[in-house]
Nucleic acid binder design. Sequence first.
DNA 1: CGCGTTGTGTACTGATCGGTTCAAAACTTG
DNA 2: CAAGTTTTGAACCGATCAGTACACAACGCG
Lengths: 198, 198
Amino acid sequence: MARPRLFDEERALDAAMRAFWEKGYEATSTQDLCVATGLGRSSIYNTFSSKHDLFQRALSRYVDTMTASQLEILEDAGRPALERIAALFERIMDQEFTQRPEGRSIGCLSVNTTVESAARDPEIDRVLARDLRVRLDALRATVEAGQRAGDIVADRDPETLARFVNAVIGGMRVSAQGGADRTALEGIAVTALGALKR
Amino acid sequence: MARPRLFDEERALDAAMRAFWEKGYEATSTQDLCVATGLGRSSIYNTFSSKHDLFQRALSRYVDTMTASQLEILEDAGRPALERIAALFERIMDQEFTQRPEGRSIGCLSVNTTVESAARDPEIDRVLARDLRVRLDALRATVEAGQRAGDIVADRDPETLARFVNAVIGGMRVSAQGGADRTALEGIAVTALGALKR
DNA sequence: CGCGTTGTGTACTGATCGGTTCAAAACTTG
DNA sequence: CAAGTTTTGAACCGATCAGTACACAACGCG
């Protein structure tokens, strides 16, 4: 045993996550990460072995917390399934517009990373693919419940509708990054809900 | 007059566009651009004044050709509006899966750039915003025609439905980059069409 | 207090970044 | 062919990149 760290590893991870989220992986330099976390280079490289490793851990943390908060909404068995999906859309919009009141939305780190590096980085892709599966499973289960209960259309299979909802969420996020305001996103959400309703 | 260029400027622009498309702006080095275009650094900097300028011109070229090909489909007055939007989805999917048969989709340069740099680069944002307006206008006009003809739902305003279709396209592109196959995208498209159908 | 261990700051590494300089090559025009 | 203009390749620029070396500071434990 010897000298203890003078920083909280999870706080540092959060700060790094934020930096990657705002600028993307490539555009975030190790210097940026030092400033964002408040750590020196040594501490960063001592704790996380490389920029890539730090990114992977930050991304994993992001998808875990983000997906957990979404599952919480989707698995709330007390409400009708369609209402849960509506609440999910609402949550997405809150994220897009509260986290960064001044200026434009920074979107979703998961979507951003899918676009920036999923195709060229197998390790990152694995993190994203696993998370995508979890989210699709939860969406599918919700859709199935809605179909049984009769508030979601039953003429299309649950996996398809899950993928549809997921794609709409992605589209809303890209739209927000492209400058769409909240009412624009609200319109997209209610239209998508219209495709599920019955 | 003096020594003429030994390369075709548009071909070079296409090659650069391709490079940016595959790797993104930040991850594409000037060296990459030399290899992709087959030009030396001097020729590139003599023709295009900077990496940023080259990117802007490549992106402009991309959105112009891409949007033109989409307008062609949307403005084909001989077909019902809903069918035109279905054909547009079909075109998107063709792009996603033919341009890169082996390996994963590289998505859409417009979406990729919106995600990577629209928020931090005003000049790039202007190019994207102008193109977005053009595409939304064409979608809105198509939706209005469909509403008049009675094949598209009339209980939501055209701008909203245009934004919805645009978001779905973005979502399909992100899904493709995340590994979705053609049948998955087809399911998303038909579900979206279901939301428009009267 | 002092030994052993670990974290931290500073300085440094070679490589690569975007971009420039410049002389020679290549072409048009007279 | 010669004068004048432009393109081209190669060498070069300072800055920054991700990552490392190392001395020293700070702590736990005996």
